[in-house]
């Protein structure tokens, strides 16, 4: 069983803020972490490997410093890691990213691809399904439980708004996973020592045979026009009157804010 886990190195968004005066990101000292959802994908991959055998390859696209995230994946138990890095990839939106990753996945080879449901910096949840489309394989998003697994296929629980579905798919398939799926393990000391010495395979655009017009900024249909701070909290309103009056006011306000 060849398992690819896609990971992304992201800034710890809990600590990213925008300076409302300059409209710029304040990121002094914001640490880079592996996208938390991807850790659940990695855990799922490692558990499957422990059950049915095979290998887990961590795959990421990013600048050279993203190697750190791959080493962390190895320290948790990934067998090897591939860093897709090339200045041609800069400025990629989800489609261009999915294209590059899908080419890399083809090059590496796989029976199963696991992704976190979304990355916490972009929150788009698009790269996984787009990758599956470009690879011509089925995908199941929002997987919260693995019910069955064999060489023929997977049976999973897929989270939906009003509950969940039991869904089956043949292999190869791409799954995007949610946090309920499992509790990711921490690295081990032996893993960390292995990770320190591990060779990280680097692939460029040419290595994966990606077309120049389909990667990076050139291959991105969407563009960021501008970024800005969200509206800051309005002045606090203290409601007055009897409980009924206060509540009536509150419900009106919440309705106008579309909270109800």
């Amino acid at each position: 069983m060849k398992i690819i886990v896609c990971i992304k190195q992201v800034p710890d968004t809990a600590e990213v803020r925008i300076n409302p005066e300059t409209n710029t990101l304040v990121r002094d000292g914001v640490p880079s972490i592996i996208n938390p959802y991807d850790l659940h994908a990695l855990e799922a991959g490692l558990r499957l490997k422990e059950q049915v055998g095979g290998t887990v390859t961590a795959l990421t696209m990013g600048p050279p410093q993203a190697e750190e995230a791959l080493r962390e994946a190895i320290s948790m138990g990934a067998d090897d890691a591939v860093l897709l890095t090339d200045r041609a990839f800069a400025g990629a939106d989800t489609l261009a990213t999915a294209y590059a990753l899908s080419r890399a996945a083809r090059k590496v080879g796989f029976d199963l691809i696991l992704c976190g449901k979304q990355a916490i910096d972009g929150d788009t949840a698009q790269v996984g399904p787009e990758m599956a489309e470009l690879l011509g394989i089925p995908h199941i998003a929002y997987v919260k439980g693995l019910v069955g697994f064999s060489v023929e296929g997977v049976r999973v629980q897929r989270l939906m708004e009003d509950g969940y579905d039991i869904v089956e798919s043949p292999l190869p398939v791409l799954l995007t996973v949610v946090k309920e799926l499992n509790e990711p393990r921490l690295p081990s000391l032996k893993g960390k020592m292995r990770a320190r010495k591990a060779e990280i395979r680097r692939l460029t655009r040419e290595d994966i045979g990606a077309e120049e017009e389909r990667v990076g900024l050139k291959g991105s249909p969407t563009q960021v026009r501008r970024i800005f701070a969200p509206e800051t909290r309005k002045e606090r309103k203290m409601l007055t009157g009897t409980a009924e009056e206060q509540v009536t006011r509150l419900v009106e306000e919440l309705k106008s804010l579309k909270c109800i």
Binding site: R185, L186, P187, S188, K190, G191
Partner: peptide, 19 residues
């Protein structure tokens, strides 16, 4: 968790599975 992270093996010789 400590076991999974090899923390129990820190002071045990490598020949016995430690670090």
């Amino acid at each position: 968790t400590l076991a999974q992270s090899d923390m129990f093996g820190i002071f045990i010789p490598e020949e016995f599975g430690g670090l």
